[in-house]
């Protein structure tokens, strides 16, 4: 099963197995990782699942939809590697993915 690494804003590292087809958001929620709130349950409506994608992985992840891009421009502290984690589906190719969690979601 692919492993995703979630790094909290305070540096705490969580490596968890996330089944292919599951979103990066769900992987965090399932494992009770603080820092991803996911109020809308993954319907791209709340932006409380904002993460920063580790640079090495940016081009392996399909581009964001217009809706997601619009939301991302308005999150607190947006960066060029910002994504909504509910919109990223884990695949075997993403085994080893590293994401950082913003301080604002704690």
């Amino acid at each position: 099963m692919p492993v995703v690494t979630y790094i909290s804003h305070d540096g705490a590292i969580n490596d968890v197995e996330v089944a292919s087809g599951t979103s990066v958001m769900q992987g965090a929620v399932d494992n009770m990782i603080d820092g991803i709130v996911a109020e809308c349950g993954g319907s791209c409506s709340c932006a409380t699942c904002h993460v920063y994608i580790d640079d090495a992985w940016m081009d392996k992840i399909p581009a964001a939809s217009e809706m997601e891009k619009d939301m991302l421009e308005c999150v607190l502290e947006p960066e060029s590697n910002s994504r909504l984690s509910c919109q990223i589906s884990v695949t075997d190719e993403l085994d080893g993915l590293v994401v950082k969690l913003p301080a604002s979601q704690f």
Binding site: A47, M67, D70, M71, E73, C74, V75
Partner: peptide, 12 residues
């Protein structure tokens, strides 16, 4: 309505 930025900024 189909205006996520208005929602996000409005919230703030």
């Amino acid at each position: 309505i189909n205006s996520p930025q208005e929602f996000m900024i409005g919230k703030q």
